[in-house]
């Protein structure tokens, strides 16, 4: 009966919608709890330091690799393009803007959501299914304050220098390529970079770091906390954490740029 089929579909959709809004509400409360427990930072100082090492120092290689390669590529491609217009001297400016405003932060966000996000998702997911998170609660410790807040604060603090590093490395590799591939004098390259950068460019780039930090940490941790159903459950929730946080990083990347560029 088609009517019955429509009914059951209706019911299924309604159920899924209900699930979705329920999850959103849970996520919102989870985030509020994470921020609200920041005053306990002193108590979880050691956890914070561990996380700062994990998401900060240990992430340096991957951030460097991605920013150096994108800087070099950008210099080559944009250089070729500008050459057609006889505007090669503009190479510094165009690569600098792309790196500092868009590609540097975005790539860093994607790399960190893969690196830091997957680690959070898997670690917290494993703790969830082995009942360690329940154990924390059972003995009177708030698992969000102990496990999520230090990760959040560490990411908020460490993503900024990582962005700076990513920008710096990207620009250096672009400059290197400009000099050795396009034969542009370094003086000309840098002259098109520094004097022309304005506050807005940095605001766009560096505003993204804390936004990504919040997205990546909260989404991956929330998914870890929601892991159910054994090892494959941990796999599922980790993947979901990475996919969702990468998607949100891309979306946020667009909106932060749009909002800041329109309003400054």
């Amino acid at each position: 009966m088609p009517v019955n089929a429509i009914r059951s579909l209706e019911k299924k959709v309604a159920l899924q919608l209900k699930d979705f809004f329920f999850t959103m509400q849970e996520f919102f409360l989870f985030s509020v709890r994470a921020f609200a427990s920041i005053p306990k930072l002193k108590r979880y100082w050691r956890d914070f330091l561990d996380q700062a090492t994990i998401c900060g120092t240990d992430s340096i290689p991957i951030v460097l690799v991605s920013s150096i390669s994108i800087g070099a590529l950008l210099a080559i491609e944009v250089g070729n393009l500008l050459e057609d217009f006889g505007a090669k001297t503009m190479l510094g400016r165009s690569t600098a803007l792309s790196i500092i405003r868009e590609l540097g932060p975005m790539l860093m966000g994607l790399m960190l959501s893969a690196r830091f996000g997957s680690r959070n998702g898997a670690e917290l997911g494993a703790m969830q299914i082995s009942e360690q998170i329940d154990a924390l609660r059972a003995f009177g410790t708030d698992p969000v304050a102990k496990l999520v807040m230090p990760r959040l604060v560490a990411a908020l603090i460490m993503f900024l220098p990582l962005t700076a590093l990513s920008d710096f490395a990207g620009l250096q590799s672009a400059a290197y390529m400009a000099e050795h591939y396009h034969r542009i004098d370094p003086g000309i390259f840098w002259n098109a970079v520094y004097p022309r950068l304005v506050a807005k460019d940095f605001v766009v780039g560096f505003l993204k770091a804390p936004v990504f930090a919040v997205i990546i940490t909260l989404v991956s941790s929330f998914n870890g906390f929601s892991a159910r159903g054994g090892t494959s459950g941990v796999g599922r929730s980790t993947i979901k954490g990475i996919v969702v946080s990468s998607g949100l990083v891309l979306i946020a990347n667009f909106y932060v740029s749009k909002i800041v560029l329109e309003n400054m």
Binding site: E131, Q132, D134, A135, R137, A138, G140, D142
Partner: peptide
């Protein structure tokens, strides 16, 4: 949850899979 923490300390729990850290 915050009120529960004091209540829970009156009880100890041994989890099925131990849940050791």
């Amino acid at each position: 949850e915050s009120e529960l923490y004091t209540i829970r300390r009156k009880m100890g729990m041994v989890f099925q899979g131990n849940a050791l850290f």
